[in-house]
Design a binder for these strands. Sequence first.
RNA 1: GGCGCAUUCGUCUAGAGGCCUAGGACACCGCCCUCUCACGGCGGCGGCACGGGUUCGAAUCCCGUAUGCGCCUCCA
Length: 427
Amino acid sequence: MSVCVRIAPSPTGLLHIGNVRTALFNWLFARHEGGEFRLRIENTDTSREVAAAVDQIQDSLRWLGLDWDGPVTFQLDRQGHCVDEARRLVEVGMAYEDEGAIRFRMPDEGSTGWDDVVLGRIDVPNEELEDVVILRSDGRPTYNFASPIEDALDGITHVIRGPDHISNTPKQLCILRALGVDLPVYAHVPNVNGDDGRKLSKRHGAVTVDEFRAEGYLAAALANHLALLGWSYDDRTTVMSREELVERFSLERVGASPATFDYAKLDWLNGVYLRALDREAYARELVGFLRERGLDWDESLVRETVPLVQEKIARLDEYPSFARFLFEEVEPDAVALNGAGAVLEEAERRLATAEPFDAGGVEASLRRLAEELGLSPRKAFAPIRLAVTGSTISPGLFESIELLGRERTLRRLAAAAARAGRPESSA
RNA sequence: GGCGCAUUCGUCUAGAGGCCUAGGACACCGCCCUCUCACGGCGGCGGCACGGGUUCGAAUCCCGUAUGCGCCUCCA
């Protein structure tokens, strides 16, 4: 039988990364099995906020590459069916009216259990199961009724969801049995927590897909990292492409204990992905990122900087501060420049005539300068870097100067020299 | 409070009774490379929550304790 899974977020806000991880597991499982992955929105009203959240959810899934099969379905659209089923259960005596609402009659004896793919066998004594409300007095079905019915309607074969649903499962199982439909397989995957062991929230850092995207993470890196939260392929494989994840994923290897989201590891992984990109792909990601940031820096120059920054930054959002000097004027800290006047003037004098004015030519010229002034390269280049890039941290100095061009370089060196003063006159 | 689930280095994890002197990765520390920052290389620190069993043998099985989380809504 072909596999069919679903992700069923409620449109109450932006897609939380924990739900995204669960969505990813569903998607990986479906793709691995050659089955279907569906998107169902558990909406209970049709307000404008809901419509916006629905778009948001779809954008997030699409950006991550989690494509779904078939149309997006809405819980609200199938209320009628749920109501019919509730009435039917009342007619056959498996449910009863209680002050206007309808409750499902849970069995009193025996137990209800299932073989959870992740947790193993779980059995719950039926006496602990309350007669749950399946239809509210206003006629709307409740979650514990609508959700399993829709799963049945959609032909869901595997319900892969968060652990907060474990105690709902026996109730849903009883309802499904009363309805006489096929039972799905359940897999309750563990939570993703913040570093304090609690639910991941804003104060831990980015929590929605949008936020990760805005911080310059690559979709493939995020997906890779998320996949490793609660699942692993073996004892040594960390970096896996989307294709490899699909090929290797299995529910059997999903662990039972909750994971803590490790931002530092994501940064490292993102760097790995960023460095692996070819120049064109990197440029595309970078240009797209800057555009979303609202930075209208010259695209062709941005593209030229790729070789200078690719190995240096782990997140795209590090780019602006790292390469700003190529697009905007700089203001080196005068105190840090103090006493470097001689070096700066000499650098200006030599670079005025250095040929060719490319990274190699500039490097040869500046190294000679350092040697002749009796300075270590480190010492000699520090003030030059500061004068030219405005920072003590920058891409390679010589490549940066080449890109900046002779004219702007000389101007910055002169301006810095004027503010720097001579070593003996430093105050 | 009741019920449920979980518990291996700081973090993600490997481990399905002997392969474990518990492996890998991130982080951290040190050294090397080096024009800064990164990258890369080498090395180091560091863990089976606790207590009882079972067994010739337990990180692995059982029981209990502790801790964390979840559910106990006419929320989803």
